[in-house]
Design a protein around this nucleic acid. Structure first.
Length: 847
RNA sequence: GCGGACGUGGCGAAAUGGUAGACGCAGCAGACUUAAAAUCUGCUAUCCGAAAUGGGUGUGCGGGUUCGAGUCCCGCCGUCCGCACCA
């Protein structure tokens, strides 16, 4: 006698233990089977798992289990992206050591993941904050350093002048430090950079081969890398400024050179700095440009301001034409040459600037509709057209003029074709404790030198304090004081740590192979990599994915790997979103968890205090804004399978999923429905051998359809197909065909709801675990229908539907359509002009 | 500001340019039950209509291409993601 209901409380634990004890999900490096490396982006151990994690890992798990059933040797690992700022914030707020906090979070989250029954190979678990990981990362850094891919340069950071500390962009709110509230300044520090720009061309062209990546991600990366070709040339100053005679500019639109009305310099430009020494107002303006944060969004949305230096330059094609030279806050020293020429008629930013400082606006590109003297109002014309008002360029298209002017500049020797990139080198220095120490020693005599590899790992000191802001490594009494490994004199360690994006740029290699004495074994890595299917949030579309692609190339370039693309196929899932709730405290929002909020009398209030709360927009779940939902109580109530199934149903996986509790009940009922079906076989053991052809057909269509949908990660469609099958099975009369369909259903649902599937498999007398079962075979002859329903339209409007034999000829379809009473009524005696017949689909009668 | 996406019933959604709303949730009505839960059956875009295998409207808004547009093109609006020190 079987239980009427499936009891997940007992069953989940039992099967999770059996999977763990038997080691079924441990990947075998030596396997002869075809391989599949299924990887979900590893989580930051922020404290507890939230629904976004559950969605991400459920998707990967379904694919991993499905691939195993198809006969692949599957690598499906899990680990922890364990360095980062929140641990330091926790240390400051709660006086707990970042390591202790992080490791406790990992333990909690590991337990939570285990209750969901994911088919992870836990034997390969890793955490980036442990010396056995970051020590190997230090070795890789040294390899890159010795390979000439690491260098040091000055770069600006957000500086909090009150807390005397470097702030992350996230910690700058409206231009002020998040703790101190003091206006943030830009400060230059000497920092470590990786030469990602050496690979710009290759990272760009490599996108062309990533045909299993979403187009949108490739496009975003392409735009980010931002290759542009243009003209670089010099404007001669009409009066020399000491040793500076020219201003070098770069433009992607040299065709508009006759529309130039000013030259603008960055505040950091050498000429600006020289002039500022003797001009206090300019010095003050340059300083003002340094105020505020460092983000692109901030730079581009701030008010465009300029300072007239009083200098002029000569136009390269007309020595009598002089242009004023401004210093402008929107010109970046990092891009191009740090100086531009402004063409107000054809660039919005330049136009805003020209209107503000009353500079000439001369149209040099015309779309042909208007006269040459056409007016430019508040909108720059950035479209295509013919060149006008430009002497020898007149009448050319934009493209022709670009080519012509570049050829002319090169042959006359005043400029040259130049390719520039938006992509900048990767600054990896962080002035923080909780990260990988950069393995460099600074010696007064020898300069910065790499730590010898036999002295790795350089371990973070444990005895640190967060009482005072700033980098604890810098303040530590002894840690940084070492002898120079080269000359033996007293020297100091680098106290910057690595950007955590470095940690996530090679963890997939370490999952494939984790020897004690080196970062990875290239031969073993070659067996698993590239990652067959990578799954993660679209918010990583640019930075993480680009850095990982770069890191793989960098290692390949120094002979450590023999492939360049780490991720063969990429899927960017949508985020699980939720409203945010907050109360205002000291003018800043104090975030509140959804479970601490309820609706009372149409108002949203905090449960504990009854205070009304601000209801914010529906955005991705994040610990920072506390709009997270914890899966634990839901798993306790409904079991892992219902939670997993719910994450897969309904919403297409690439779309955002607004969290709602309502649907979980439905998933719970479905799990119970499955269980009753499985149990019903035993009760119908002596079922008659009646044929149910419709059911068999549906079964095989479902096997094929679900496999296709899982491969495309369209889980919501697979779920819908399973519902249709289950609906049909339930309507089917008890028979052997019905029993056979139910038995085949078990492996079909096993990747999604593995616990109830295992339980059913055992109930149906199987001794082997369903985790080791194979995917059911499809009888192709049952896939094709022999009848189809066709639509009959009159002037594109549906008037009737007919059931016809599949594959009947066009003439027969047309004849049938015309005999329909409803169609005749719709035609109402009018002349038939045309009849369109689409075989097995529809007939459209045009009158 | 720049780059990328998304927008279809009360809700999550489906639909190689070819019957819009499959499938699920919620809801309503009924069956079973002393009762409830669970389960089962039916209905459920919207308007007109007592109803109809009656008709009109309908995929964010405005145009266009096509025999035919949720799908393709142009222009808007709204929302979300990223913007290099959040991960």
């Amino acid at each position: 006698m079987t239980d009427q209901r499936f009891n997940p409380l007992a069953a989940d634990k039992r099967w999770q233990k059996r999977w763990a004890d038997s080691g079924v999900f441990e990947a075998d490096d030596a396997s002869a089977k075809p391989r599949s490396f299924v990887l979900e982006m590893f989580p930051y151990p922020s404290g507890r798992i939230h629904m976004g994690h559950v969605r991400n890992y459920t998707m990967g798990d379904v694919l991993a289990r499905f691939r195993r059933m198809q006969g692949f040797e599957v690598l499906h690992p899990m680990g922890w992206d364990a360095f980062g700022m929140p641990a330091e914030n926790a240390a400051m707020a709660n006086k707990v050591h970042p390591g202790e906090w992080t490791r406790a979070n990992i333990a909690t989250m590991r337990d939570q993941l285990k209750t969901l029954g994911f088919a992870f190979d836990w034997s390969r678990e890793l955490a980036t904050c442990e010396p056995d990981y970051y020590g190997q990362e230090q070795a890789l850094f040294i390899d890159l350093f010795e390979g000439g891919l690491v260098y040091r340069k000055e770069s600006a950071v957000n500086w909090d002048p009150v807390d005397m500390t470097v702030l992350a962009n996230e910690q700058v709110i409206d231009g002020k430090g998040w703790r101190s509230g003091a206006p943030v300044e830009k400060r230059k520090l000497s920092q470590w950079f990786l030469k990602i720009t050496d690979f710009a061309e290759d990272l760009l062209s490599g996108l062309g081969d990533l045909d299993k990546w979403p187009d949108k991600v490739r496009l975003m990366q392409e735009n980010w890398i931002g290759k542009s070709q243009g003209l670089q040339f010099q404007f001669k100053l009409t009066e020399n400024q000491k040793d500076i005679e020219t201003v070098e500019v770069f433009s992607t639109r040299p065709d508009t050179i006759f529309g130039a009305s000013f030259v603008a310099l960055s505040a950091d430009h050498p000429l600006t700095q020289q002039l500022a020494k003797e001009n206090e107002t300019l010095a003050a303006f340059a300083k003002e440009c340094k105020a505020g944060g460092t983000t692109a969004a901030e730079l581009e949305t701030m008010e465009k301001k300029g300072f007239d230096t009083g200098l002029t330059v000569a136009h390269p094609l007309d020595p009598n034409w002089q242009l004023p030279v401004y210093v402008a806050n929107f010109v970046l020293m990092d891009y191009g040459t740090g100086a531009v020429f402004g063409v107000p008629a054809h660039d919005q930013r330049d136009l805003d600037f020209a209107r503000k400082y009353d500079l000439p606006v001369k149209r040099v590109i015309s779309d042909g509709e208007l006269s040459d003297a056409e007016f430019i109002g508040d909108e720059a014309y950035t479209g295509a057209g013919k060149v006008v008002n430009s002497m020898f360029l007149d009448g050319m298209t934009v493209e022709e003029a670009e080519k012509d002017i570049i050829n002319r500049a090169e042959s006359q020797g005043w400029g040259k074709a130049q390719t520039t990139w938006r992509l900048r080198d990767w600054g990896v220095s962080r002035q923080r404790y909780w990260g990988t120490p950069i393995p460099i020693i600074h010696c007064d005599s020898c300069g910065p030198i790499a730590v010898p590899k036999d002295q790795l790992p350089i371990i973070l000191p444990e005895d640190i304090d967060f009482e005072t802001p700033g980098n604890p490594l810098e303040r530590h009494a002894t840690w940084k004081h070492v002898d120079c490994p080269k000359c033996g004199k007293a020297a100091t360690r680098e106290t910057d740590t690595l950007d955590t994006f470095v940690d996530s740029s090679w963890y997939f290699l370490r999952f494939a192979s984790q020897p004690d004495d080196k970062p990875f074994d290239a031969d073993v890595v070659a067996k698993w990599l590239p990652v067959t299917q990578y799954i993660g949030g679209v918010e990583h579309a640019i930075l993480h994915l680009l850095y990982a692609r770069f890191w793989t190339r960098a290692l390949a370039s120094i002979g450590k790997l023999d492939f360049t693309e780490p991720f063969e196929s990429l899927f960017t899932q949508g985020m699980v979103t939720h409203e945010t709730y907050s109360k205002e405290v000291d003018g800043r929002p104090d975030w509140i968890f959804p479970h601490d909020v309820e609706r009372r009398d149409g108002k949203t209030v905090e449960i504990s205090s009854g205070d009304p709360v601000n209801v914010g927009p529906v955005i991705k779940m994040s610990k920072a804004k506390k709009n997270v939902v914890d899966p634990d109580p839901i798993i306790d109530q409904y079991g892992a399978d219902a939670v997993r199934f719910f994450m897969l149903s309904d919403s297409p996986p690439e779309r955002d999923l607004p969290w709602s509790e309502a649907g979980i009940e439905g998933s719970w009922r479905f799990v119970q429905r499955l269980w009753r079906l499985f149990a019903s076989i035993a009760e119908n053991a002596d079922a008659p051998a009646q044929e149910d052809k419709a059911l068999n057909r549906k079964l095989h269509q479902t096997i094929a359809g679900v496999a296709q949908d899982i491969e495309a990660l369209s889980f919501n469609k697979a779920v819908a197909k399973i519902f249709e099958l289950v609906n049909l099975i339930e309507k089917s009369k008890a028979s052997q065909d019905r029993n056979a369909a139910i038995k085949t259903l078990a492996p079909l649902v096993a990747p999604m709801v593995p616990h109830v599937a295992e339980e059913a498999w055992a109930l149906l007398g199987e001794s082997e675990m369903i985790a080791n079962a194979t995917w059911p075979a499809v009888d192709a002859s049952l896939l094709v229908e022999d009848e189809v329903t066709i639509a009959i339209q009159v002037r594109g409007k549906l008037r009737d539907t007919l059931i016809v034999a599949k594959g009947i000829d066009k003439a027969a379809m047309e004849e049938l359509a015309l005999t329909s009473e409803k169609v005749q009524r719709a035609i109402d005696g009018a002349d038939i002009k045309k009849v369109i017949v689409v075989p097995d689909r529809l007939v459209n009668i045009v009158i």
